[in-house]
Design a protein around this nucleic acid. Sequence first.
DNA 1: CCCGGTGTTTGTCGAAACGCAACAAGGGGA
DNA 2: TCCCCTTGTTGCGTTTCGACAAACACCGGG
Lengths: 231, 231
Amino acid sequence: MVGKLDESLLRDVGPFRRLDRAQIREILDLATPRRFDEGATVFREGHDADRFYLLMDGVIRVVRTTAGGETVTALHIPSGQLFGIAQALRRETYPATALCARESLTLSWPMGLWDRFSARYDGFAEEGYKTVGTRVGEMNTRIVELATQQVEQRIAGTLLRLINQAGRKVEDGIEVGFPVTRQDISEMAGTTLHTVSRLLSAWEKQGIVSSRRRHITVTDPHRLVLIGEGR
Amino acid sequence: MVGKLDESLLRDVGPFRRLDRAQIREILDLATPRRFDEGATVFREGHDADRFYLLMDGVIRVVRTTAGGETVTALHIPSGQLFGIAQALRRETYPATALCARESLTLSWPMGLWDRFSARYDGFAEEGYKTVGTRVGEMNTRIVELATQQVEQRIAGTLLRLINQAGRKVEDGIEVGFPVTRQDISEMAGTTLHTVSRLLSAWEKQGIVSSRRRHITVTDPHRLVLIGEGR
DNA sequence: CCCGGTGTTTGTCGAAACGCAACAAGGGGA
DNA sequence: TCCCCTTGTTGCGTTTCGACAAACACCGGG
């Protein structure tokens, strides 16, 4: 097992921001840290929701799988956020599967502590619900996009969301901060990797994006916004 | 203004089930009852979330409107449920618009009372969060459907959901319990009214559904389930 | 260095679904 | 009763996408 975790780890993380040193100490002493490889599964859809997590570093991809075996990516979670907080909505099982889009570090606690943390620590429940609220908003937006927009607009929207959530400024634009394949993007936009590939090729010719294997850089975000709005 | 509301109104309604007579009395005395015509707006997307509601009777349709003016129906709310509970997720504005799919009766309270109710009344917050949890689950399902299924399957799924949530047993099957147009269904399934019309005509010929103007009856739900699964 | 697996590109083809348009059928109000 | 407006139907042309297929690029391991 690991030695004592340092209190500075949680000092600037949303749900714990209002707590004092001693409280953070208590919380850390109850936490289980863990490292996950890229592609590893943190928890699975339908399984008993026995723990909740805080993402310290990395990116989590939340996916659902259909009866037919197809995969749909619901959202990505950046570091510093809680996830797997089924208990907040009084669910007994996880509603989706959480994968690591790249190597990730988590802290986790038994779900039984959720209500205790909520009662004892100022701002903890508050932050948790805000997180849920934000995600519900995002889901809503996705529904509207899927229902009304064409594939081209949806892919543009998907790329923009990716660089917003996990973008890294690089020399010629903004790069998505974790490895993404065409397949991944197709699962986010609800289309096929073929269509994504074609479209990215076209955009690359127009100088809107540039991509290497598993890496995508948006060089002209403004154009992408226009495309997303339907020209 | 209306006279005193009767306590039996809330006795069997989810969020208040665990309360005693006196508590229900307190809550009712703070409530504002209101009747809405079919098609009336209860609250609008983006407006200040100043009240939360309980649907006593009727059906609420939750919709979002795109920049381009298209409408997408997110879900329907049956009577007995809380809605407009933005405060539970610490939102300051309503995330969507609530319309009445038919004549409806609501009680409502100032949003400021949400936290007071949560603290004071056993099971109130619990029920609220469960409701949110259920709706999040439904939204997730819709995302998966929109992303992976074809129009035919989505329309089948939409119809099944409608009769589950607001179905009324009639002589030759199960009827949707409020007026629905082809346009409405297209907004739920993310397609056009033309496609819906064609499909319903075809299904009517096959004896799966029967419809009159603004009324739809499913006569063979099992067949519809098969279609929804892709045959 | 070669080899296999994974990820990507590109082309062709056809079906699904949409837009347009014209028309039919009810229903409610004057 | 008549008229108008909303709702529903249907045919046709067009576009968009997905299915299939073949080949190539990149990467790590033996």
